[in-house]
Amino acid sequence: MPRESSVEDDLAMSNGQPFAGRSILVTGASSGLGAAAVRRFAAGGGQVYAASRDQERLAAVAKSCADLPGAVRYGQLDVTSADECRAAVAATVDAFGRLDVLVNNAGRHDFRITTDVTDDDWHHDIALNLSGAFFTAQAAIPHLLEAGGNIVNVASVAGAMGEAYSAAYTAAKHGIVGLTKALAVEYLDSSLRVNCVCPGGMDTPQAQTIDVPEGADWELIMRVAAKRGLMDADDVAAVVVFLASDDAKAVHGSIQYVDAGHLAG
């Protein structure tokens, strides 16, 4: 059943803390969009469990939130491991006693010429960009149903179009879109909401370290670039946090393109 509102909730909302008393798990939280989402949830009073492989960067993210109304704890998560996905959900519930929001953000875009992709490359890319979101959601859903919570999956514009030298990544991000729709339909008769954000290019550490394979056509790669250039990750995080909030209580099963107009043409 959905959590009932209270006087404390109303006061928190009026003080700009819409996530006060709520627990949020953010995967891939050590940089970029994940880190920006952690800070926005903490600014809204949320209790955030930030999960990633990079503990040093997670510590820095948590430190940057020290003066915010919410609380941030962090821990290890390699989403290519189903066991670690389940453990991250359990750690969040252990830390805060509940789980209200799951943000499936972890992922990485590696460019590879299709004929050079190894078996291990393919399986790793699918595990990192799709399977991890499934296993984390699977573990989280019982807690989210109890709390009347929601899931925000992070895909990409690659979930709506093809990207050169990105067969596994594009397939995985289309899968995230499909996963979102499947869960939304399966849980129509419950309080659980499931939505998806498809960002375009963002100015993140990953974007600054793109490794283009030898012989690749740079013009094909740049076909996915928006005319307005790279977006600030915090602007995309604002949409993630909106979807997770009560302001989006009527939004379920939606695919939100946050791409500075790239897919409009």
Rank of each mutant, 00 (worst) to 15 (best):
A164M: 07
A133E: 00
S166M: 05
G200I: 04
T115N: 12
R223S: 08
V177A: 09
N105L: 03
V157C: 03
D67C: 05
S14V: 02
C85P: 00
A216H: 05
A184K: 01
A237P: 08
E163V: 14
A172F: 11
E219R: 11
K173D: 12
E214M: 09
A95Y: 06
A160F: 06
A82P: 07
I141D: 10
V26Q: 03
F135I: 02
V224L: 06
R228A: 15
E163Q: 15
C65K: 01
A66G: 02
V93Q: 07
E219Y: 04
S14R: 14
E8D: 15
S166N: 05
S156V: 08
D203C: 05
L68H: 08
S52I: 04
A238Y: 02
L220P: 01
L220R: 15
F242A: 07
T114W: 09
T92Q: 09
P213V: 04
F111S: 02
L144W: 01
S31L: 01
T115D: 15
Y49T: 05
G70Y: 04
N104K: 02
L102F: 13
A216W: 04
R223W: 02
A250E: 11
D246N: 14
A36L: 04
V177W: 03
R73L: 14
Y257I: 02
I176S: 02
G75P: 07
D259R: 00
V79I: 13
E8I: 08
A60M: 11
V240E: 01
A106H: 01
R228L: 15
A244G: 13
E186K: 14
H123V: 12
A36R: 02
I176Q: 03
D203Y: 05
G45H: 04
V117L: 14
E219M: 07
I210Y: 10
A158N: 15
T92C: 15
K249V: 10
M161G: 03
D234V: 15
H262G: 01
L130M: 07
A155K: 05
P69V: 12
S245N: 12
G28H: 03
N104D: 06
V101E: 11
T136K: 04
G34P: 02
G97A: 12
V101D: 12
E4A: 15
D110T: 13
V152Q: 01
G200M: 07
T92V: 12
G32D: 03
T204C: 01
P18I: 05
G45T: 12
H124D: 14
A50K: 03
A37W: 03
Q47W: 12
A225C: 11
I126K: 06
L263P: 04
L68S: 08
R223P: 01
A168T: 00
E163T: 09
D259H: 02
M161Q: 15
